[in-house]
Amino acid sequence: MHPAYSVIFFTTASGAGYGLLVWLAMASVFGGFPPDWALGLIGLGLALALITAGLLSSTAHLGRPERAWRAFSQWRSSWLSREGVLAIATYIPAAVLGISWVFYERFDGAVAIASVLLSILALATVYATGMIYASLPTIRAWHQPLTVPVYLTLAMATGGILFVFVLSLFTALPAWAITLALVAVVAAYVTKRFYWVAIDESPRSLRPENATGLGHLGTVRQLEPPHAQANFVMREMGFKVARKHAVKLRRLSAYLLFLIPIVCLLLLFIASMYTAPFFALVAVLAMGTGVVIERWLFFAEAEHVSMLYYGAEAA
């Protein structure tokens, strides 16, 4: 599948943003820190900026961005529509928490209900994003039970690293924050690792013989394509990364996305208040680069079944 930069930026940035919202909201519910208005402003501001930039970027790949509002209408059947509805709905409890936290320095009582609702909606939005891909039977690498867990755990891991970074700017990092972030990163690593194993092991069971229904006559090979130049279907669905590059890129993304952040988090246990933001920033930058490579691969490694008509050997 063609890796569209706008979609890569949208899914990674908004994933991290929704993850950060969950961390901030849940930490406020459990009273993890005092309701410092500056922390609220920077933390919630960063999360909402990432989400908003992602949502705006996602409209960049539309042929008719001015009609994007129509995408809120078909939530009964479409995961893309559900994602849009949930994404917008999340702003409401986020605004309640943000106004109360930043202007009144309170996040207890009724605001805590908004925080819980915010966490649920943020996770539901990421779940819907994952389901857009997981619900497509035409793409074997996406139609996997681990696709949605990967989206959810990566959102919590990238959001968790951002949370630790933001927190490190304001206060000595509490051990619970580092520990929970570490758990999130390890959970994301384990999920992604099993996802890669699953897509490597799942059989490429469809062949040109299935696509044409001519298998009973023998093997089917492309003799002549319908057109000389690549068409939309081939440009959109035919993108494929070379196997050896994929292996290298997987390793690189695993180092950046999991190994470096884990090392940084461990160092944060012993870092002083003054060096902590530096280690946290390194983790943020490594993870940001790593998740972009991971998402690029998610598209580039995915094979679409329609390519069987255009000479693909299996899908």
């Binding site: 040109p208 044409t212 001519l214 006559l217 090979r221 492309q222 003799l223 068409n231």
Partner: peptide
Amino acid sequence: RVHSYEVG
């Protein structure tokens, strides 16, 4: 679109 295949 009209494809042409070799079969068998």
